[in-house]
Amino acid sequence: MTATMLPTEVGQMSAVALAEIIERSIDGNPVADYAERESLAWSVIEDGGWDCIAVAEEFDGGGASLRDLVEVAQVWGAANIPQPLLETIWAKRWSAQARERSGPMSVSVRRLGVSDGSGLAPFAALAATGIARSIGAATDEFDVAPLGEADAFTPALRPSVLPWTTKIEAEAARELGVIWAAEVVGAAQKLVDLSVAYAKTREQFGKPIGSFQAIKHRLADMHSQAQYAQTAVIWASLEPTNSQRACHYAVGISISLAEQSIQIHGGMGFTWEMGLHYYLRTMLTRRELIAGLWP
C-alpha cells in the first residue's frame, strides 16, 4: 500500500510549470483558435527538457514516476494542444533509442474492428514525427512516418492509419494507457470548469442558469464524476493489476462529462466555435487507442 496518493515533487512542479508554459503560448485564446495549428512549438518543449522529465535519473532525466505523469497528463489534456508531448515523454522513458533521438515521437496502436494488422498512429501526420517500431524491447527502432493523411475527425491528435503497429512491451503499454487516460481526465475536468463558469454567467429568466436545480444538480454530479475519474487514473497509476479497468472507467465517465458540458452550454455548446467538441473528439479517439493497447 502506498503511503501517499500525491505525486512526488517532480510531478507537482512539472505540472505547475507546464501549465504556465501552456498559458503563455495560448495566451488566453479559446481552444477553437489553437487546436488545429502548431500552438506550442516543439522547440519550446525540447528546450525546456519537457520530453525528458520521465527519463530515469541514471540517464540524466527528470525521474518522474507514472504517478507524476498522471499529474502532467491532466494539465496537458486540459489544454488539448496538438503535439505528441505525452507520447514522447513516454517513449524516452522506455527506450534508449528514443533518448538518442530528438523531435516528436509517437506509436502505432492496433485498430479494433479490422484484421489487416494496421494501426492508428496519433500525430503521424505531423512533420518529422518518429513512429516507434517497437518499444520496451532491446531492439527499439523508429521510423519517420511518411506524412500520411490525417483523420480530420480529431484535429488535435491528427492520427493516421499505418500498415503496421508498434510492438510494445506489456508494462510500457500499461503505462501509456494510464497516461492517455489521465490526459482524458484532465480534459473532462476542464469541461466541468467551463460548464460551471458558463452556468454562473449565462442568464435566462433573469437569473444565472446555475441557480436552476436541474443545472445545479447536474453540475454537482459532474463535479463528483470528475473526481471519480481522477481517482481512477491515480489508482491505475499506483496499482498495476487494476490499471486496465480503472482507465476504461475513467475514460467512459469523462466522455459522459463532455456530453453533459454541451448540454449545459445549450445551443452555444453545439457550435464549432465554442470548441467543446475538440475535447470530445480527442476523448473518443483516445478511447479507441487505449482499447487497442489492451487486447
Binding site: F212, A214, I215, E259, I262, Q263, G266, G267, G269, F270
Partner: peptide, 12 residues
Amino acid sequence: TRAVSIYSGSNE
C-alpha cells in the same frame, strides 16, 4: 444528436 436534448426546448 448532441443537439436533440437541446433543441425544441431543452429536456430540462
